[in-house]
Each structure stands twice: as C-alpha cells, then as structure tokens.
Design a protein around this nucleic acid. Structure first.
Lengths: 149, 149
DNA sequence: TGATACACGATTAAATCAGTCGTGATTATT
DNA sequence: AATAATCACGACTGATTTAATCGTGTATCA
C-alpha cells in the first residue's frame, strides 16, 4: 500500500497539470477539489517544491504551479520522494540500499531473486508512467476500457 | 517494503521445503539457521499452520513440516497472509477491498488505473512463483545469471 | 497597511511493527 | 509416573511511522 501522503501528492500534481500553466493555484483550491486536508497538502507541496517539481509564489495572488512538464514527472519519482524505495527489500533499493542484517549472503538469499523480479516489473510501470498519462481519466466517458485484468 | 515477518515466513518455508518431507523440524533449528528470533518464528509458524500450509507435532520429537507441496505455495499467498493485500490501493485489493474515502469516483480516479497496472504485474510475479522455485538458490555456485536488470 | 497566501518547525494521537514474556498443553523417553 | 522437551497462545511492550494539526513567521498585492 502506498501512503495517503503519496496519493495526495499524485492527485495534487494531476490538478496542477490540468490547470493553465501560467496561473498559480491556491493550496486551498487544490485541497478542496481533491478532499485533501489543507495543512497536510501544504507540507506535501513543500516537499515537491524542494525537489524542483513545482514552484510557488507567496502573498495575495500567490499559489503553486508546475515547474516540470507533466510528461516529465513519473509516478516512480513521486513515490520514491514521498514513500521511499520501491523495492520490497532494502537490499534491492536503488535509492537507499541497505543490506538485510539477518541475511548472511545476498547472492544465495533464496527470496532476493524473486523480489528483484518484482521490483523490476514494478519499476517498469512506475518509471514509464507520467502525470500526463493520467490526465485523460479526469472526466467520465473518456475512460478507455483497458482496465480489467 | 515487505515486513520482516513476511521475510521470515518465506525463509522458514524454504528451510522446511528443503528438509526431508517425513521428518519434522524444530522451531529452534529453523530459527537458528535463518537468524530468526525463536519466539517470533513460533508466532509465524502458527499463522502458517492455521492456513493449512504447515502442520506441527507437539512434545519431544515434535516440530514442523510442510503440509502443502513446495510447488503449491506461492509468494503471493504468503505475502497476503502475513502482510495483507498486494495492491497499492485499498480499492484495488482482491482480498480486502475498501473504497478510498477521499475518492469521489473510482472510475474517474486518475491514479487508480496506474496502480491497477502495478498490481497486475506484481501479482503476475508473486502468484506464479512458488517456494519450490527458489530452492536452487540455497548453495553458492548454483546461481543462474538472470539476476541483473 | 492590512488582508491573503505560502513557509516551516513542533506537536500529537493512533496505528503498526517487531518482538518478548509467561503460562499451559502435549508427547517421548526414562 | 515423572521428567524434559516441544509446540500453543494470549498478553504485553517499546520504537517507529503515519496522518495530521497548531502556531507563528514571512512575502506580496491592492
């Protein structure tokens, strides 16, 4: 399960991506549209800002806007930023490798190979899918029927 | 990341799968071989027993042995049992569906489609891989070089 | 200069994780 | 029958993480 925070981050980015790229959106407007606690969203957008994904203006007429292109923001990038590694084992993480303390030898670890495969297919999806890819899903009727299985 | 508990469960099953299928293994022996806290492993094996994956004998000369065939125990099955749903969103879980309270409409949820794809590829690996599939990795030298990327 | 918006550190309540403790029940051996 | 080894099982605990909330400060526009 991804965290609530990551879910909020992704949805906020979708809202920003749909907006006029010149005009900043208020935290409160994004929060309301997506049912996100305002103060929590504030924290999230700050994280995204530190990473250079969004930018902000202060004061009246302030707000947030996308800094990177929507087609240049991958799900993988956001999830790693908010939730940490995508790999199921610390010893398989690209961004935060740690050896499993209870494991005597990585090469002969029986389960590592399996989770390596899992990590690879997961990354395959998350690192190729961008915020731009999911804009179509906003409105009813526009949904392609690739959904099931 | 999978939990430590799930990691222990999988490794314990590998040990049981490698053992003579007639002879029960002591919790303490499995615990020692895989560096698992004995009391914790006890709890884990009890969970696996309730699911009919292993069985136990009590008393002196007691111990645990596999009830199901190693080729009939999938990673997916064990992970669902110990860690819960494999899906990244509650609204995509097969075993414990719950709607996201902050989501107004599942069909038009922008991120749901992406995580549905993630869940499908992940299940693809986890539900086809069994304990039997990873027995080869126990000893050094026997490792196929499919590992990387 | 005041209203409005973002900035940011601190705090918190609840849940989850990773075990540990203690006691009881069962069985093989002596 | 007694003993010792083993599994059974509920309760407890400390640390960490999650999902926020609070309060104050700073920038900007009208």
């Amino acid at each position: 399960m991804i965290s609530q925070k990551a879910k909020y981050a992704l949805r906020a980015l979708v809202v920003l991506a749909r907006a006029d790229s010149e005009k900043a959106l208020f935290i409160s407007d994004i929060a309301e549209e997506q049912n996100i606690p305002k103060k929590f969203l504030e924290q999230i957008l700050l994280d995204l800002k530190r990473e250079g994904i969004v930018m902000s203006r202060r004061g009246k007429m302030g707000g947030y806007l996308l800094l990177k292109g929507a087609d240049d923001i991958t799900f993988g990038e956001i999830l790693r930023l908010i939730d940490g590694p995508i790999a199921s084992l610390p010893c398989l993480s690209k961004i935060a490798y740690r050896r499993c303390e209870d494991c005597s030898d990585e090469d002969t670890c029986e389960i590592r190979h399996v989770f390596n495969e899992v990590a690879n297919v997961t990354r395959g999806v998350l690192d190729k899918t961008t915020i731009a890819d999911c804009l179509i899903y906003g409105e009813k009727g526009k949904i392609p029927a690739i959904l099931d299985m």
